[in-house]
Design a protein around this nucleic acid. Structure first.
Lengths: 128, 128
DNA sequence: TTTGTTGCAAAGGGTTTGCAGGAGA
DNA sequence: TCTCCTGCAAACCCTTTGCAACAAA
């Protein structure tokens, strides 16, 4: 894959983000906006394909992207107030899978877990 | 809420579906297609608001709808081959939440879990 | 009769595609 | 030079909205 200023800029934006960003947000944060939106889409798709980034589709139907900071199995915990996201390592589901498989008859191959909550700084702001 | 033929038709389609359906699919299955697409959208939105139906947004960015067969906390297990969906009662996450909250500092308020696997009939077809 | 619903058409808005020009290696 | 990449514009397509006609109660 060729190194281009656009790709560098996109990766730089993702590296400094503390939450999943929409394509528009990424584009807006690129220095001098030196890229067209389609380029952002195409490169993000590429990054996801290469396993460097991850796409998250929320209930608002807008795609958001984050860098994969860890390659192993993990989940996301997002703040419902500011959107800040952290990764959670263990989800503890593994222990329940066997029971679910027995009850349903399905062979479970993968799962997606999204956790929502309120981050420490928003809690401080809300709770005073 | 008024009773209309369109609403009856939509509910009837959802009642006989064994997997989440897109708006187009619901519309196509309505008898004599006696409704406009916007009506389907509006009523599904209403049903979700009333707690009768649930919307699921998959990675293909298309909204799908299912009736809520159970009011209590549950999750969905979808077949990756045919899309057939069942509900799973216990997810076993509750036991992990305290640890996650301690590690992250977040107060976790809710979670979404989607399980994927292969249903019994697809397994039979695949495994011969 | 009153008021919520529907249908049509058009608009919205995030995402994708075609293609010619441009830049990396 | 040879590809791959980018930018522009337009197309796509799912979804929403405006509004007049209609139907449930």
């Amino acid at each position: 894959m060729r190194q281009t200023p656009q790709r560098e800029a996109i990766l730089k934006v993702l590296q400094t983000a503390d939450r999943p960003l929409t394509v528009e947000e990424i584009w807006a944060r690129m220095e001098k906006r030196r890229s067209g939106i389609p380029t952002v889409y195409r490169n993000l798709e590429r990054f996801v394909g290469e396993g460097w980034a991850e796409s998250i589709l929320g209930q608002d139907q807008i795609m958001r992207f984050v860098l994969c900071r860890s390659a192993h199995h993990h989940h996301h915990l997002s703040c419902e107030t500011c959107g800040k996201m952290v990764e959670v390592d263990a989800c503890g589901i593994e222990t329940s899978l066997a029971g679910m498989e027995a009850l349903s008859g399905y062979r479970i191959t993968r799962h997606q877990l999204h956790l929502f909550g309120i981050c420490p700084s928003c809690r401080a702001a809300i709770e005073g």
